[in-house]
Structures are given as structure tokens and as C-alpha cells.
Design a protein around this nucleic acid. Sequence first.
DNA 1: TTAGATAGTGTAAAAAATACACTAAGAGTT
DNA 2: AACTCTTAGTGTATTTTTTACACTATCTAA
Lengths: 241, 241
Amino acid sequence: MEKAENINLHIREIEDHFKAAISVDCVIFGYDESELKVLTLDCNMDPYLELPSLLGDLVKNDENLDEAATRILYERTGITDVFLEQVKAFGELDRHPMGRVVTIAYYALIKVDEYGQNGMESKHNAKWRTIGSLEEMAFDHKKILNSSLHLLRKRLIEYPLWMKLLPEHFSLPELQNLFEAVLAKPLDKRNFRKKISKLGIIKEVGKKQEDVPHRPAKLYAVNEKKLREDYSFLLKNPFVS
Amino acid sequence: MEKAENINLHIREIEDHFKAAISVDCVIFGYDESELKVLTLDCNMDPYLELPSLLGDLVKNDENLDEAATRILYERTGITDVFLEQVKAFGELDRHPMGRVVTIAYYALIKVDEYGQNGMESKHNAKWRTIGSLEEMAFDHKKILNSSLHLLRKRLIEYPLWMKLLPEHFSLPELQNLFEAVLAKPLDKRNFRKKISKLGIIKEVGKKQEDVPHRPAKLYAVNEKKLREDYSFLLKNPFVS
DNA sequence: TTAGATAGTGTAAAAAATACACTAAGAGTT
DNA sequence: AACTCTTAGTGTATTTTTTACACTATCTAA
């Protein structure tokens, strides 16, 4: 019965190791007031009291990682159908004061205007903070944020993820500003527009900005037909590159 | 003492969740006989008996994820200084028959010639298998392999990772074949050489292939100076893009 | 009407990617 | 020594992509 022994050994070994916890932390990106922001809480755990922290929770025993991330997003913002992608796992020994907690980081992209309507922000003490204002964070959340931002930058260049951050109707200057905010560098207006228009994924909606004290910009929307034809992978959630 | 209560709640909650195990699985890539191969074991766990599996192990309580991956690589191949990068976490509920085991996948690149010299392959029942031959695998290892291969392809295009797979001296036809094996598509010889030479990262070693029944190819080696100057990030381990 | 502010538009040059076919060098054979 | 077989090695022209760059148009407000 070598096989059975082998398995018993495995079981003992595994029991010995089933002492860790798994959590999911979400870097929730939003684009608002021409800035890239992250939804944060104020940490209430020593020794990180008052420091901004990401939204996270332990993974329950009956949900997989993607489901946990989706649940956290829903519990904390009330939004469903959020764009999500796993970033990576973080497992430093000392990353959590309670013990061994390995966390799986996700980033999420949400439309701040839709989220705002639910008034969830104040209900859960969540705060939007600009990337620049997040110098010190609880746990290893600054590291997680950095990795997530790095991934977001690569993704934004590769795929039209900006559509997940912008409201239904948006202008090209807004779109360019979003790129500049995320990539943290200025872009040439004409070259930018050339590239966007070549994607063929946006269409004019026949309206213009209102209440601006200068020439109003044309408004665009995502061309849903083209989206389904050429970018259907963006509709599956969570996203896998 | 609201704070203390809060923390006690947290502790109970966490204890309730400290029932999961964390493992690391390594997709160990090697390039040999002009093919991309993966180091595998034959699974000895029901219901996956005999199916090829990746090399993995539970993460110990005193090691972080990167250390666990490095340890697994060392225990299974005897090699230190292996190129490693985390792929992502896999946490489906039913992925492991023993219970909830979330695994963090890494891929590793090793030089088959150096590894071979240790004779570790037979010592540990590890087998090199070609990618093409791995249709069915134990656990969710096929999914892990697919994700890892996908990442490797992106990385190979972006960075000169091929140097981690090739022996000290190699020819340009060998290098091109490595690309073709990993990317699974043919490349134009002249354009390929143009691109490689523009990197400036290899130098002739003044030798030629021996024992080939045709015109021998020139041999090259990595230009260590250029490597340290322009690609020092490849020397840090594990790699983070 | 004018001033102020931002929207919107095209072209030329440089760089990168692609397509493509012949000669060169060695081993093995007669 | 000549010839055959096999793979190594090389350059140019075309297309595509990226970059750099400056002026006119449209709206609000005074």
C-alpha cells in the first residue's frame, strides 16, 4: 500500500500547511476631474492606523479568486460588471500583522460617474485619492499599487481599456487627458487622434460639450458593433490578456 | 474598546479562513534538440495518476513565494541562479483533490546543457517533454502551462530572455530556431538577424560549429558588458517586468 | 466686436517592419 | 580534384508606423 501511505503523508503535510489565509486586494482605478484615482479606505489595523489601504478581504472557502474579487468590488461599491484583471500574488512573510496572508492583487476599472450615483463612497468610508497623493500606504499596498499601475499602463497601450474608465459620452481631449494621466506623460494631440481614429472603435454621437467657457468638443461613444467584432475579449470578465 | 473588539473580530475571521494551503508550481522551460520543452513529473495522485504534472510544492511557513519557487527549482533540478518570473495565481475551488490549495505559478528558464550535467533528471523522475506532447495534464496544470507559455512568448519578444535558455556558445540559426519553437511560427532569416544584431548584445567568439555535415555556423556569446549596461534587470531574480 | 480659451486639422521626415534570392563554406562522395 | 549536398550568411527596396510640428475654427464672456 505504498500509494496509500504516500497519500497519508501528503495529507499530513498539507494539514501542516493549511494555516495560511488567502486574501484578495483590489486596486480600483477611476478617472475623475482629469486625474487617475484609486479608491482607498483608512486602515484601522495596527501598525498601519489611518494609512490609506486598498479594498480587500479574505477569500471565502466557496469562492474562487475571481469571484472573491468580484464580491469585494460589489460589497464595496455596489457595482457589478466591473472590469477586472488579476495582477499577481504577493506573499512576503511579514506583509500582514495577523499572520501568513498571501494576497492576490486585482485591478479594477470603474466609471466614476456611475459609481458615484450609488452614493456608496460615503457609505463605506471609501475615498478616491489621486495616485500622486498615495505615498505611504498600509501593509504592502504601495507595492501592490505600483505593480497594478505598471500593468495598467501596459494594458492601456495595448488595448482600448480606457472605455472602461470613461462615461458613455466623452470627448477626444478627455480621452487624451486620460492617457496622459495614466501614462504620466504628455502626448501629441494630432498623433494621438490619428491613432485613436485608426482603431475605429469610437463614433460621434452628434452632440457637443455644454457649459464650457470655450469652444465645446465633440462627444463620442464606443462603437458597440466594432467592440463586439474586434474586441470581444474585453467583454469577458475577468480579463485575461 | 471598539478597536480591540474590531481586532478580535478580525482574528476570529482570519482563523476561520486560515484553512487554505498555498503552493507554488513551476513551469520549467528548456530548449533542447531544437524544441521547447517543459520539465514534468508523472503524477502519483488520484484521479490524475500517471498524467504529467508540473513541479510544485506547498509553500513553507518561513519562506515567501519567490523563495518557495527558488527552493522547488533547486530541490528538483539542483540548479541555483535560475531565471524565474511569477505568472499568476490559480485558485479554482476544485483544482486540488486534497482541499483548497491556491497555487502561484512561476515559469523558469534553464539551460538544459548545464542542468543535464547534474544527472538530476533521472534522480527525480523528472522528464523533459515537448510542449506539443502535453495535451492532458494533472490538476489544472495544462491551464497553468498555457498561461506561462503565453507570458513567455510576450517576454521573449520584449526582452532577450533567450540567453537564459541557450548554452554559453550558440549560433544564429540556433537562436532563430529557438524563437520559432517558442513562438510556433517561422521567421525570416535576414530580418531576424537584423533585429538581433541591432540589440548589440551578442558577440562572435571566433569559433565555429564542429561535427556538422555542412557549412558550420559561427558561434556567438552574450556580451556581458552590454548585458550589465542595458539589461541589468535581467540579472535580478526573480524577474519583474 | 473683440479677447480669451480650447477644439480641431495635415503633411513631411524618420524609423521600423516586411518581402525577397542569391552566394559561401564546409562535409561527404566519386 | 571535382562535384554534390546541405546549411550559413548577406543587402536592398517597399510599406507601414512613428514622430515632429503650427495654424485655423468655434464657442463664451466681456
